[in-house]
Design a protein around this nucleic acid. Structure first.
Ligand code: ZN
Ligand code: ZN
Ligand code: ZN
Ligand code: ZN
Length: 906
DNA sequence: AGAAACGTTGAA
DNA sequence: TTCAACGTTTCT
């Protein structure tokens, strides 16, 4: 084994000894560098790989080896620095943030006042399955071998709930946005107010996300906001810094977690880098080398906040279920940039880094400019234009579209941009219409007019038309009415952010991370510098407003999303005639966690209820109580035999005698009866994995009707259980477009946990279009049938023929097919290095309650790279995509590394 | 597009 | 019958 430096000196020796799993990504990088620094490029690389394979030692030697005892780290009192702060949920507000910044970790013993929403303690791993789909593939870390592996949610539940587990597995990178689970979990209110994804990432882009897995090619925004971590007793995630310098919120629903954390002081960062690059991770507990390291035990019900850059490790004494999320914000920009540099220095592959890190930086700066001056450099968003093709990153913000380009005859360099505020009729600047920017630099002139340092608003609005020197356009409806003071923390961070972005502009165009819809990066920098100058003397007391400085107009819109039970499509029958069996509405199962919990009393529907003092007109169930598995009415009977359904106790998968409701024709039958009645059916239909007793019947499948479960079911195919699939809809992918513009590198990374998952898998399954509801969407709507005439909407049929002739329900599918089931997906893997203690190690001391702080988080995503495994390593090898040249040397340069996401394993 | 309103269904 | 609340319709 040798250190990074040593390896460097050995460039042409091709000697690489891996001693610790955590480092696979690093090793990949090292090898790559070697290949580059040496002649022979590819060939050498191949050779090297071979050598590695041939000589590599046995896995035990490489992986999972830990030469020190964690037990000592868990019990000795050395990690007693007092770093963690304790707060009440109600104290964690924007005012608090503006006054103090986010410097130390914070523990909340109660979630009250945080605005955090999570399921009740009755929520189990099996409920996670119900919400994300049993077929979702998880990236699982096998603790004992350190290998990452994939497992379906279904298999994971089986493992997690089995009494005797034969191995230690850990799930730390299940990002569940865009699955039904997201409807039951909200991050703390302040986190939502701070998160740049919500404050600065163009909304229309985020809204375009449909994929529930973290495949980078389908990612439309940094998808790292909601993670579900499931760990069994004994899991350990070695020291790491959360990717991109993200801060983390972390709530323990069940179980217990022990963190060791240390601040990102220069000394600690240097040691972290050194340790990371060395081959000693398995031999050295980094906490022993860090200053101010504190161990903290977190119990069920606690909520924890880890600030940007804190170095931490996590041990799981008891089986745990945790919800958490990562976010970038304006009150610790310096550390966020610092961590990005640390990631560069430690060769963290892009898949372990914050997706679109540089892009979001650009957006943030534009937001500051916009919110403080009313001008923006974002191209207007044209909906029409983007529907189908998504240019990936070209987004524009739809809220404001305003610009009309160039009227003037500026033959020359200046373009005047006129702006109209607010209305919709303003023309939209299409991307094609490029505005020519000119840098004439008048900008500078115009800006100076403000000098005041105080409340007056210097230049805010006035620059509309006149200052047209740049390509910016005025977006906001209201240019700031009053002067917004910035905190010193933001001011300083922005200043450094400008330096970071300036460096980016010295890179090749494709590595600058400039979003496509940000028209004039140079102009952005010029403008933000002026803004910072204008705000340099902002009043610190007035800066504490309790409101975020950046955001989007009309920002606080919340979407009330209601889950629909069952397919919606049915038709309601109004009249009476007959017979038709119209689709029956489903009812709550009364057994799931949502059904058994108490009403929150705070959501829109609760507030409407009479019991909570409302008018009672909405008549809807509490948001958090929307059933996860709605059932058919208990009075349902088979349309063919008229009997009730019965379940097969011995084999839950046998649904032949269960009542099944077809998502296409809506008939409810026993599959066996259907089979009997139509002997010519050669398929068994498609069973929904998301909704109980739901399928697309054999008859419909046989007729080639298209449902949501399986888009193209060919007659004759056999049964398959599927999650809904969305239909066609997926537009061309953005990624293509972007490839040119964005280096693969920027696409995604994270450390610790894999932020970006492998591609492939999700390809087929797509999330439902319905964001989050998860269940099938009904066709557009149905109509009521009136008495006599049964009208059926479009095609329908099936029903009518229903066998006994008695049925008549018609089904409608209007354009139907738009039904979709919800999500599925898979996610990225985690990777953490783990350690192993025997499971028995539960005896760790519990520190706690009183809290002794010292936690760490293992949130799901962390940056260090953990777990990769040999196989991955080997496979990845060829994955190395291009290389980057100068590597270590340019330590300053921001990231861009080169591994493409899929590389991880093939 | 969201939010609210409602008629009506399902459970007890 | 009463109460809860589904899914469409209507409002903003
Ligand atoms: Zn509620
Ligand atoms: Zn339920
Ligand atoms: Zn039957
Ligand atoms: Zn059918």
């Amino acid at each position: 084994m040798c250190t990074w430096e040593e390896i460097h000196c050995l460039q042409d020796k091709i000697i690489v000894v891996i001693t610790q799993t955590l480092f696979l990504p690093k090793v990949q990088y090292i090898i790559l560098v070697m290949a580059e620094d040496t002649e022979g490029g590819r060939k050498l690389r191949a050779k090297e790989r071979k050598l590695y394979i041939d000589q590599e030692i046995d896995e035990d030697d490489i992986y999972g080896r830990r030469t020190y005892s964690l037990e000592d780290k868990l019990t000795n009192d050395r990690f007693n620095a007092s770093m963690v702060e304790e707060l009440k949920g109600s104290e964690f507000t924007m005012e608090w943030m503006q006054r103090h910044g986010l410097i130390r970790p914070i523990v909340f013993y109660e979630k009250t006042g945080l605005g955090l929403r999570v399921p009740s303690e009755n929520f189990k791993v099996s409920d996670v399955k119900q919400c994300v789909g049993s077929r979702r593939i998880l990236d699982v870390m096998d603790v004992s071998t350190q290998k990452a592996m994939e497992m379906s949610m279904k298999d994971w539940v089986r493992y997690y709930e089995s009494p005797e587990r034969d191995r230690l597995l850990n799930v730390i990178s299940l990002e569940f946005s865009h699955t039904r689970l997201e409807n039951y979990v909200d991050s703390p209110t302040l986190v939502r107010q701070l998160d740049w994804v919500d404050r600065a990432w163009p909304r229309h882009l985020k809204e375009r996300q449909t994929e529930s897995t973290n495949v980078i090619e389908k990612m439309k925004y940094p998808k790292v906001q909601k993670y579900c971590l499931m760990s069994v007793a004994g899991c350990y995630t070695d020291f790491h810094i959360d990717f991109g310098g993200t801060s983390v919120w972390y709530h323990i629903l069940h179980g217990e977690k022990i963190f060791w954390l240390a601040p990102p002081s220069q000394k600690n960062i240097d040691r972290y880098i050194e340790w990371t690059l060395s081959a000693k991770q398995g031999d050295m507990f980094l906490g022993d080398a860090l200053e101010l390291c504190q161990r903290v035990t977190l119990h069920a019900g606690y909520t924890f906040i880890i600030p940007s850059g804190w170095i931490h490790a996590v041990y799981t004494p008891k089986d745990s279920l945790v919800f958490g999320g990562n976010f970038l914000h304006s009150f610790n920009i310096d550390n966020q940039l610092l961590v990005s540099r640390v990631e560069d220095k430690t060769y963290v592959p892009s898949k372990f880094r914050y997706p679109f890190f540089s892009e979001i930086m650009w957006y943030v700066v534009d937001r500051y400019i916009s919110c403080l001056t009313g001008r923006t450099f974002l191209a207007a968003y044209d909906k029409d234009e983007n529907d189908e093709e998504d240019h990936s990153f070209l987004h524009v913000d739809e809220d404001f579209t305003i610009s009309s380009p160039l009227p003037t005859s500026h033959g020359d360099e200046k373009v005047e941009v006129k702006i109209k505020l607010e209305d919709e009729d303003s023309r939209k600047l299409s991307k094609n219409t490029t505005v020519e920017l000119n840098r004439i630099d008048a900008a500078k002139n115009s800006s100076p007019n403000e000098d005041d340092t105080q409340p007056t608003h210097p230049r805010i609005p006035q620059r509309s038309l006149s200052d047209a020197s740049s390509s910016s356009t005025r977006e906001s409806k209201r240019p700031p009415k009053k002067w917004n003071h910035l905190t010193l923390c933001e001011l300083q961070g922005l200043k450094h952010l400008v330096e970071y972005l300036s460096e980016l502009l010295t890179l090749p165009v494709n590595k600058r991370g400039v979003p496509k819809d940000l028209l004039d990066p140079e102009g952005v920098l010029r403008e933000i510098k002026q803004v910072l100058e204008d705000h340099k003397n902002d009043d610190q007391d007035l800066a504490v407003t309790g409101e975020p400085v950046i955001g989007w107009p009309e920002s606080t819109k919340k979407k009330t999303q209601k889950l629909k039970l069952g397919y919606k499509t049915s038709k309601v029958l109004k009249g009476s005639v007959s017979s038709s069996s119209v689709r029956k509405r489903r009812t709550r199962c009364k057994k799931c966690e949502a059904c058994t919990r108490t009403e929150c009393g705070e959501c829109t529907f609760c507030r409407d209820m009479k019991k909570f003092g409302g008018p009672g007109r909405m008549k809807q169930t509490c948001f958090s109580r929307q059933c996860m598995a709605p059932t058919l009415p208990s009075t349902s009977v088979c349309m063919i035999c008229n009997q009730e359904g019965q379940s097969n106790e011995d084999n839950p998968d046998d649904i032949s005698l269960s009542l099944m409701e077809c998502g296409i024709c809506w008939e409810i039958v026993h599959p066996s009866c259907l089979q009997k009645k139509y002997e010519n059916l050669d398929n068994e239909g498609v069973i929904s994995e998301d909704l109980p007793n739901s399928w697309e019947c054999s008859r419909c499948c046989n007729e080639g009707k298209q449902g949501q479960l399986k888009p193209r079911v060919k007659p004759g195919s056999s049964v398959k259980r599927t999650k809904a699939d969305t239909q066609p809809s997926q537009p061309a992918d953005i990624s293509d477009v972007n490839l040119d513009e964005k280096p693969a590198s920027r696409i995604s990374p994270v450390e610790g946990k894999r932020v970006v998952s492998k591609e492939g898998r999700s390809a087929k399954l797509r999330g439902s279009a319905v964001r989050s509801t998860g269940w099938p969407l009904p066709p557009k709507k149905f109509k009521v049938l009136s008495d006599i005439d049964v009208k059926v909407e479009d095609d329908v049929p099936v029903s009518k023929m229903a066998a006994d002739g008695q049925s008549l329900s018609s089904s409608v599918t209007s354009s139907s097919s738009s039904l979709t089931f919800g999500g599925y997906e898979r996610k990225m893997g985690d990777n953490s290095g783990l350690e192993y203690l025997n499971a028995d190690s539960q005896r760790t001391e519990k520190v706690l309650s009183s809290h002794s702080p010292s936690p760490q988080q293992q949130d799901g995503h962390s940056s260090h790279q953990p777990g990769t495994r040999l196989a991955a390593f080997l496979g990845s090898r060829h994955g190395l995509t291009r290389s980057r040249s100068h590597s270590h040397k340019s330590s300053k340069r921001p990231k861009r590394d080169v591994f493409t996401p899929q590389r991880y394993r093939d």
